[in-house]
């Protein structure tokens, strides 16, 4: 793994996580919170493939599980985002075919992350996970993530490619 990529990923994910808890969750929106961190994981996976994507997903998920105000079992978001990173990375080659592919990937990741996280919670009898709560989160999560991805995906992909180009120029 070239170091520039890894450093860039750590910086992007840290900034995304900080903005996620201080800004995104404060937005007066009904239902879900726009998931900036999920979008950065998806973007990094689309830029560099499933291997890189799953490592980014695991790191980002573990961070969400640990930093305040987390109050759930450590590992729940790590599990979900590892899968998101891996599966989004698998779609990388498809993105060259159509511009709609990244949007589909984001929509599936948004819905899938809510369902997978709730599923793990249901297995542990988490009293907060109810069918009503899932139903109210699911549609808004998909809509917010798709809208936000229109800004986040191109930005992260451009930064990632630029970093690659600089790396290549130095080598």
């Amino acid at each position: 793994m070239p170091p520039a990529r890894a450093v860039l990923a750590v910086v992007l994910l840290t900034v995304a996580l900080a903005l996620q808890v201080t800004l995104m969750s404060r937005l007066p929106l009904p239902g879900a919170t726009p998931d900036l961190l999920l979008l950065v994981v998806v973007a990094l996976a689309l830029a560099h493939g499933p291997g890189f994507g799953l490592v980014c997903g695991f790191g980002a998920g573990l961070a969400v599980d640990l930093v305040p105000p987390a109050d759930h079992e450590v590992g729940r978001w790590a599990l979900v985002l590892t899968l998101v990173g891996y599966l989004a990375g698998m779609a990388r080659d498809q993105t060259r075919r159509s511009a709609f592919v990244p949007l589909v990937v984001v929509a599936v990741a948004g819905a899938g992350s809510v369902l997978a996280y709730a599923g793990v919670g249901a297995l542990m009898d988490d009293p907060n996970v109810t069918w009503g709560a899932v139903r109210s989160l699911l549609p808004t999560a998909v809509v917010y993530d798709v809208v936000l991805s229109a800004f986040v995906l191109p930005a992260v992909l451009a930064v990632a490619r630029r970093a690659e180009a600089d790396q290549a120029a130095f080598a």
Binding site: V21, T22, R26, T33, V64, A70, V114, G121
Partner: peptide
């Protein structure tokens, strides 16, 4: 209050 948990985490906590 400086941080609020994401709604997708299903818990209502703040920092």
């Amino acid at each position: 209050v400086i941080a609020i948990g994401t709604a997708q985490t299903f818990s209502w906590t703040v920092t």
